[in-house]
Amino acid sequence: MLEAVYLLSSCVLFASIRILIWYFSLLPHIVAKSDRWDVIWRWYNVWVSWTHSLFAGATCLYCLYRDPDMLNNLNKNCDSAVSSFLVSASTGYFLYDAVDFLACVPISNAWDVLAHHVVVITCFVLVVKSGLFIPFAVVALLVEVNSIFLHARQLMRMAGLSHTVWYSLNMLTNIVTFIACRFISIAWMMRWFWHNAEDIDQPYYGVLATSLPVMYIINIILFFKIMSKDAKHILSIVKNFKSGIHNSWRKCQSHDHPPTCINSKMLRRD
């Protein structure tokens, strides 16, 4: 009963955040002057997603810090109120975001996001209802650590800040955390599932066997989308890095081996 209250309260909370962002007109100039409604909607949507990522990412790391054994026992009985609250509140957010997409975006343009949300909501509702596999859901929410930088990347691009140093730093952090918090964490869960499949009852077995490969495929597609858009930026950073190393090497060489030529004026005797 308490988990249901958390879930519904979370839906209301994130909808309220959306309204507050609209009320205070938290729009950058480049978005505010756009006459495209979908651009303005996207800004509000990503802002709300970013706030959830901050909450879920920080809370997830806290839960794993307090109980690191959850990483090895994804189906252990967990009596942590914080972990249960995290899963329930995140389920509410994904329900809110799915409704927001269905109401404002054609399904053909948002199938990957909706597929992700359907998988997550199915898993989390089952977890919240039964109280089992709470550690599994907490580890799955490690992806929100990466989402902090993923959503920040989108906000910076929309605000016209893609040529700043902060964008470059965020872009590199996004790539590193994407690999660590999405690819590696999901691979870790798949490995655990493979070794413990015999001990998992239905319907959990069917849900996990379906959701884990789907999540991995969705994240591979998302990663290639990000890399294709940031490829030019990444190549520019690599080029500048190589150029800096080359220039530093030349300076070192010039200091270690000063010119041997002697000016003829230096040989004159007064």
Rank of each mutant, 00 (worst) to 15 (best):
H116A: 09
R153T: 02
V138L: 11
M158P: 09
L141Y: 08
K129T: 05
I148M: 13
D97G: 02
L150Y: 12
F149C: 08
V143C: 14
E144Y: 06
D112A: 08
I134A: 08
L132I: 10
D69Y: 01
S84R: 13
A140Y: 10
V118Q: 01
K76Y: 01
H117G: 05
Y93A: 03
L95C: 06
S108H: 11
F94I: 02
D67H: 09
V99C: 09
D100F: 01
F85L: 14
N75F: 06
V82L: 07
N72K: 12
D67S: 14
L102M: 14
L155E: 03
Y93T: 08
A159W: 08
S83K: 04
G92H: 02
F124Q: 05
T122R: 09
S88K: 00
L141D: 05
T122G: 04
Q154Y: 10
H116Y: 10
V139L: 15
V125I: 07
S83W: 04
S84A: 10
N77P: 01
S83E: 09
I148W: 00
V127N: 13
V113T: 11
D69A: 02
S80Y: 03
L86M: 11
D97L: 04
A140L: 12
V82Y: 06
Y93L: 06
C123L: 13
Y65A: 08
Y65T: 08
V118P: 02
A81Q: 12
